[in-house]
């Protein structure tokens, strides 16, 4: 009997070899001893983030007062939301405020305001507004004159688990995101010309009503794209919205649009911020998390 009270050498060596092998396996095969599958939490989080942006108007609270116009209270606790009321309709003001908030207050502040910061983990994000045909292979941001309408966050990494969720949205204001917004109303007859470089998101002519001409009150309008007559309307058929985007995008070089109108109130909107569907300008909100 070993009465010396010491571990025999083979026990110690065997034990230490076993522990080294065990720790090696536990470290380098993460699927065996996983505590939380990280990818599983990314998709619901991307869904949640897209829902609070697209469906909620946001909220600010400074302890004594609160409200949903967080775009006017960027320096207090807030939750960002872009909804302008109405299903899937975004407020252009809130989109601009989101960009400003990101540029002035930084990446971490936006992360906190979107609920992407937890005590155990911080998520990285990239949120943008893109045109319908845009995809991760060929990204096509919704733009106005100064750049993308909404582009916040870090560039999307090429490797690793990334979750992406898209929502289809519309803007509440046609002219606020336009690169050209021009009044073509006139009580007499005028010609307005525009030079646009395709491809563009939308070229819309909105005729809201007749103008004040009492003597020749019948409104009419002719539109030529690169010399080809595409619209020739008169009377009540003039009071509507015309979408000539497809005519313009059929060319590959600068297009000359000639609009001759009589006794109308209306305007022209040319924009790369969205496409004209269902009577509104629409785009998609893309939320990417990793």
């Amino acid at each position: 009997m070993n009465t010396k009270g010491e571990l025999s050498l083979d026990v110690v060596i065997g034990l230490s070899i076993f522990m080294i092998a065990f720790i090696f396996v536990a470290q380098y095969i993460p699927s065996i001893f996983v505590v939380e599958n990280e990818e599983l939490s990314l998709y619901p989080l991307a869904y949640r983030t897209s829902a609070i942006l697209a469906e909620d108007s946001g909220f600010w609270n400074n302890g004594s007062a609160n409200g949903t116009d967080w775009e006017n209270h960027l320096n207090v606790d807030l939750r960002i939301g872009l909804s302008g009321g109405g299903a899937n309709v975004l407020s252009v003001e809130k989109i601009a405020a989101f960009n400003d908030f990101y540029n002035n207050y930084g990446y971490e502040s936006v992360r906190r305001a979107l609920g992407l910061e937890t005590p155990t983990r911080q998520y990285d994000y990239n949120i943008s507004l893109q045109l319908f045909a845009s995809n991760s292979g060929q990204v096509n941001y919704a733009r106005n004159q100064s750049g993308p309408l909404l582009l916040v966050g870090n560039p999307v990494p090429d490797i690793g688990k990334v979750a992406r969720y898209e929502r289809i949205v519309a803007y509440d204001n046609l002219t606020a995101i336009a690169s050209i917004s021009s009044n073509i109303g006139t009580p007499s007859t005028t010609v307005n010309t525009f030079n646009v470089t395709p491809p563009i998101g939308a070229f819309i002519i909105v005729v809201e009503d007749r103008n004040t001409n009492q003597t020749a009150s019948e409104p009419w309008m002719n539109v030529k794209v690169n010399g080809n007559l595409v619209i020739n309307v008169s009377g009540n058929a003039t009071i509507t919205t015309f979408d000539i985007t497809d005519y313009v995008n059929g060319y590959s070089e600068t297009v000359y649009v000639w609009i001759q109108s009589h006794n109308i109130q209306g305007y022209v909107v040319v924009t790369d911020g969205g496409e004209y569907v269902g009577g509104r300008l629409g785009a998609k909100l893309v939320v990417i998390l990793w």
Partner: peptide
Amino acid sequence: DALNILSNPQSDANDTL
């Protein structure tokens, strides 16, 4: 989302639902 965007009773556009 597509059905919500295309449902626009106030508009006279031809492509609303």
